[in-house]
Design a protein around this nucleic acid. Structure first.
Lengths: 208, 208
DNA sequence: AGCAGCCTACCACGAATTGGCGATGAGTTT
DNA sequence: AAACTCATCGCCAATTCGTGGTAGGCTGCT
């Protein structure tokens, strides 16, 4: 298993290097203090996992992971940082990072994270997992229980996709009037009274 | 640290019980094979963590976690199952579970998961973490780079909230016509031509 | 047989939205 | 100075939407 490190803090980089080289199943294939010529380096070294500091000189870690995933999508990237900055965490993950560990993570967990990421899994330190989870949960249901029939869900989905009544009617082979009625019923169940609100609520509450 | 188990498979329940009682920092405060009188039991036992099988008789695990989080939101729940059923995983997590482990998880990881969950963190087995992450990543940008002006973003946000042109005009103290033009420009930039599509695209690409 | 819920379909009217066309002024870049 | 972007305001015709009704057919439950 080949690992590449991108980390500007020398002490930290060295301790990571030590951790990798003393690990029997891993091989350190590169270690750098900036992201210059990032893609070329990775292309040449062919690491299984890239460890990327989030605040690294050159392109920062978020840009870096985006680039890696754009040009070399098979490379798995594990981010690391000292800060629990929500925005950066989400940005990294959205841009394709497979893992996220804080720098106070004990060595054996770091190795574990690397192994999980190498196998295509994901690893978050618990606090990061919690943040991801919160983001996940908050999208859902404000306590209302909305029960739509299958037909209604089908039509709501098309509505959310931006189709007009007429297009929906075409799509499901029903009369325009029927669609009209269904949508009125949907609005009532969602407690909304415009297309915009309906779409918003449908997406936020993952009704589609 | 007090743990309660809800698990219908006897063998599995017993091995969990063994795992807990032989663990120095944990105490088994209850172990059940169904979810009957769930809330009363939990209220009486006051566990720190509930281990909940997802396919348990009575109310299933998803309903159970929802109830727990509704009546006793401070209780942290860790789900477990043999299957990697995406829908159930997401449903559990959305309903408030803090952890999700598969039943083939080695004992020491189970204990680790319980500890993380007890401390308010989250724990997923890597494959589940991957699923959560995928759901996270897919929400974002299809590769297009959409550059909206501040005004446009502001108006798009209100549009997404379900407001009509007139209401938006009121909201930002502009003329109806101005809103109209902005929205037309927004549509052009988003390559859409209806309110529905615009809202959809705006939400999917997190432009707001 | 009666009731309830769902899917279907229709009428009608006022309000909202779209799409096309044009215009001005402020500020920035070239 | 010309070109450009951004924000602002305007008109108009065609379409779509929101809301109020009505109503038959179907299924499932009592």
């Amino acid at each position: 298993m080949k690992i590449a490190i991108f980390e500007d803090n020398q002490k930290f980089r060295e301790s990571l290097e030590f951790l990798i080289v003393t690990s029997s199943d891993m091989e350190l294939c590169g270690s750098f203090e900036d992201t210059n010529r990032l893609i070329q380096k990775i292309e040449a070294l062919e690491p299984d996992v890239v460890l990327m500091d989030i605040n690294i000189p050159g392109k920062n870690g978020i840009e870096a992971v985006r680039e890696i995933k754009m040009y070399l999508p098979k490379i798995n990237v594990c981010m690391q940082t000292v800060f629990e900055d929500d925005d950066k965490i989400f940005a990294s993950l959205c841009n394709g990072a497979s893992g996220y560990i804080l720098k106070n993570t004990p060595p054996e967990k770091v190795l574990q994270a690397i192994r999980e990421v190498a196998e295509g899994g994901s690893f978050f330190t618990p606090s990061v997992a919690k943040k991801v989870l919160n983001n996940f949960q908050q999208q859902v249901n404000d306590g209302e229980f909305i029960q739509l029939t299958d037909r209604e869900k089908e039509i709501l989905k098309l509505l959310v996709d931006g189709l007009s009544y007429k297009m929906i009617a075409d799509n499901v082979n029903l009369s325009f009037h029927t669609i009209h009625t269904h949508i009125r019923n949907i609005y009532e169940k969602l407690h909304v009274n415009s297309k915009g609100e309906a779409i918003n609520k449908a997406m936020k509450n993952k009704l589609v």
